[in-house]
């Protein structure tokens, strides 16, 4: 079936906020087994795109299909989403949150979540309220990555965490990698993640500027994606 080949298909995907065009006619197909960087300056439509993929926003035009379905119940079971903001309940302990996820998602791997918590020296009995911003981000990322999803949509997963934890998170994403699942990472820290990526998407003012593999870009341009980004979006 075509769903197997194309995990996500966007056709003329458009989102308007009043008169403002947040996304304009985005055509994009993502296959399985890829790690994809979603790159673009502030306000280029990255978060809007990820929200559309999760049904948190409805398209103003065009369509987005994940595994053949519009975002909804069917897709939530195969998509693990890390939003760009905190959604944690302050009164919970880390352990409560992990149990909550384990109850909620059939594909949640409890053992893996506990192992990741331990590696990052996070105590399950800590109350979420007492955690720093960066630590909360780590917890949120752990419960997202501990799912065995087909599509991971990570909105700025490494922005707020320290460089050592960043390395760990990237290696976790790499170890998690399977031929069936695809990871989309939106970030500004291109140099940090470039060697982890298969493909990159450049968004500029809501339009698809470039969609290609990292090595194709390096071959063609003779420079890294990070350098290309700085040129394309020079202020």
């Amino acid at each position: 079936m075509s769903e197997h080949q194309n995990l996500m298909v966007c056709t003329g995907l458009t989102k308007l906020f009043g008169k403002k065009q947040a996304l304009t006619g985005l055509n994009l197909t993502l296959g399985p087994g890829k790690i994809v960087g979603l790159l673009g300056p502030n306000g280029s439509g990255k978060t809007t795109f990820l929200k559309l993929a999760n049904g948190l926003l409805q398209p103003s035009g065009g369509s987005i299909l994940i595994g053949g379905h519009a975002p909804g119940c069917e897709t939530h079971s195969i998509v693990a989403y890390l939003p760009d903001r905190m959604y944690l309940n302050d009164w919970m302990r880390i352990r409560d949150l992990v149990d909550f996820f384990a109850d909620f998602y059939a594909d949640f791997d409890l053992a893996k979540a506990m192992e990741m918590l331990q590696t990052l020296h996070l105590s399950p009995s800590d109350c979420l309220k007492t955690l720093s911003k960066g630590t909360k981000e780590k917890v949120q990322l752990i419960v997202t990555m501990a799912r065995r999803a087909q599509l991971y949509l990570l909105d700025e997963p490494i922005g707020g965490v320290d460089p050592a934890a960043r390395d760990y998170i990237l290696s976790t994403i790499l170890q998690n990698y399977s031929e069936n699942s695809t990871v989309v990472i939106s970030t500004h820290l291109i140099a940090d993640i470039e060697r982890v990526l298969d493909e990159v998407i450049f968004l500029k003012e809501g339009e698809l500027k470039l969609f290609d593999t990292v090595d194709n870009i390096r071959e063609r341009e003779g420079k890294s994606v990070d350098q290309l980004f700085r040129e394309v979006f020079a202020c």
Binding site: I35, L170, S171, L174, R195, V196
Partner: peptide, 14 residues
């Protein structure tokens, strides 16, 4: 080897 080099397995494959 991909894990060791911190690169995408598809890149190492290539």
């Amino acid at each position: 080897l991909a894990a060791q080099a911190g690169v995408n397995p598809n890149t190492m494959q290539r």
